[in-house]
């Protein structure tokens, strides 16, 4: 069963990407990915660039609005996501717990839609 592990970051965590904490920050994430690979659960994922690099399109009936910046306009923002393939939700939560802890980082776990034929 596939799950998405969504990692929400504080502004300070995003700032850490470009100061002296950078190597430790990315190093922890790569070791985490290595662990998932070793266990054979890693499917894919992506690290996202800083929220201020985002552009948002709002689809309305017949109109669309393009805006600078991410959605939603909250303090914490999505920083990246992993997709894993595990037996059940409990196993997915166990992997989410192993995600490197940073101050204020919140992890959301959500099942993926099964592929439809």
């Amino acid at each position: 069963m596939k799950f998405a592990i969504l990692s929400y970051e504080t502004p300070d965590n995003f700032a850490a990407r470009s100061d002296q904490r950078r190597d430790a920050l990315f190093g922890a994430v790569f070791r985490y990915i290595d662990e998932m690979r070793r266990a054979g659960v890693f499917v894919g994922g992506a690290g996202l660039d800083l929220p201020q690099t985002a552009t948002t399109i709002r689809l309305e009936e017949g109109v669309r609005r393009v805006q600078d910046g991410p959605y939603p306009d909250t303090k914490e923002q999505l920083g990246g996501l992993f997709v894993i393939d595990v037996a059940d939700e409990a196993a997915a939560i166990a992997w989410a717990r192993r995600c490197p802890r940073e101050p204020g980082r919140v992890i959301e776990v959500r099942p993926l839609l099964p592929p439809r034929t």
Partner: peptide, 13 residues
């Protein structure tokens, strides 16, 4: 500029 950007599907920045 923001309105023009939306019409042309380009980021306002």
């Amino acid at each position: 500029a923001a309105r023009i950007a939306s019409a042309f599907l380009v980021a306002p920045a």
